[in-house]
């Protein structure tokens, strides 16, 4: 009885340890896979396209800013906040290994920045296209 109790206690500790793993344990590929899973369920879904992503990234939509207004036309280079001038680290994973490794951060920035650029949330298709483009950008 005692051994059973102890073993289950150890198992609990192990599970807690796994759950405590930091959220950035994901790769940009895994993030893209989960966006794909979400996109596949939406009507009119097409395979992600880097070309479509690039055009979305570089053009203006509902507002005065495009993604490139802050991240520049070269996402492998450091950007600059269009309003405050604060330097923004490169967005392309080839130039900045920390990018697209935390689902929480990805969700936060897509939410804010799509709102600033398009005045609405981005569709999973749009997010996947943009990430497909960013993944093709070489350092």
């Amino acid at each position: 009885m005692f051994h059973l109790f102890r073993a289950s206690g150890l198992a609990l500790v192990a599970v807690a340890g796994l759950a405590a793993q930091p959220a950035f344990a994901e790769t940009p590929g895994e993030i893209q896979a989960s966006i794909q899973q979400e996109a596949a369920g939406t009507p009119g879904f097409q395979e992600f396209s880097a070309a479509r992503g690039e055009s979305l990234f570089k053009s203006k939509h509902a507002n005065d800013w495009s993604c490139a207004s802050c991240h520049t036309d070269n996402p492998a280079a450091p950007g600059k906040h269009a309003k405050t001038g604060k330097v923004i680290d490169p967005l392309a994973p080839s130039a900045n290994a920390g990018r697209f490794t935390s689902p929480k951060k990805v969700a936060k920035w897509f939410k804010r920045n799509c709102n600033d650029v398009l005045d609405r949330v981005c569709t999973p298709q749009e997010k996947g296209d943009v990430l497909a483009y960013l993944l093709t950008v070489k350092k």
């Binding site: 309003k83 929480k104 936060k108 939410k111 804010r112 920045n113 709102n115 600033d116």
Partner: peptide
């Protein structure tokens, strides 16, 4: 924070 001096700065 959704309208933070004109920008969306929302957090959870």
């Amino acid at each position: 924070l959704k309208n933070h001096f004109g920008d969306d700065a929302s957090v959870d």
